[in-house]
Amino acid sequence: MQTTTLFNKGHRWLIFGRDPSKPERIIDTNQYMIISQNQSILLDPGGVELFAPMLAAVLKHVPIENITHLFASHQDPDIISSLGLWDQVLPNAKLYCPWLWEGFVRHFGMNNIEFMPIRDTGDVVHIGNIDLHLIPAHYLHSSGNFHVYDPVAKILFSGDVGASLEPAGAPFEVGDFSEHIDKMQLFHQRWMPSNNAKQDWIRRVRKLDIEIMAPQHGRIFTGENVDKFLDWFEALEVGIAVQ
């Protein structure tokens, strides 16, 4: 599992991904960890297949008792099917997840971790000495969906928005935006169901000061590529499976 530091000024943002041991036919995912003081949160900790390499990777940075929070942007298996295993080793942790999915994600196994339902309008989570804003992103693509914004690091964890599908070993960061479009166009058109939801999210996100937009698949967007992405996404017709 490769690890890259995205931010390290008072608190840290790490991205984990491009796992060489990942079984071939499962989609590659990015997992994130934010560490502040003696607390940390894992954002979309991943599927059950990734649990062992993820645990080994996070323990390079924090002792296990300092993993205090989990966040699941939505209910998909690549996001949170490892929950049953985290539940065995993080008995005192809290899982922040859209309220809509509680009865569903519990199917992954959750006897110890505390479920913290996120209301539809969003919330703020305190980790160490920072506040993380849970931004509504409903229908992008899941019907109960949130992103995470850190106003100090100016990073937006954008879940499936900005995701791209590309071969293993791809770089962590988008270089030339126009060359990157092909890798993400179909994903957004097919997975995202609602143009209204998309415009609502863009309006909300444009008000945020973002230096890094970090999706759950593919590469992260930095600097002017963030605005380029928002412009491109705004003009994109989604929900194409229904003619």
Partner: peptide, 17 residues
């Protein structure tokens, strides 16, 4: 999975946990 994680983790990490 925990045994696998232990084997994958580096000796100077927090793997004792």
């Amino acid at each position: 999975n925990l045994e696998k994680a232990f084997l994958l983790s580096e000796p100077d990490s927090h793997r004792d946990g």
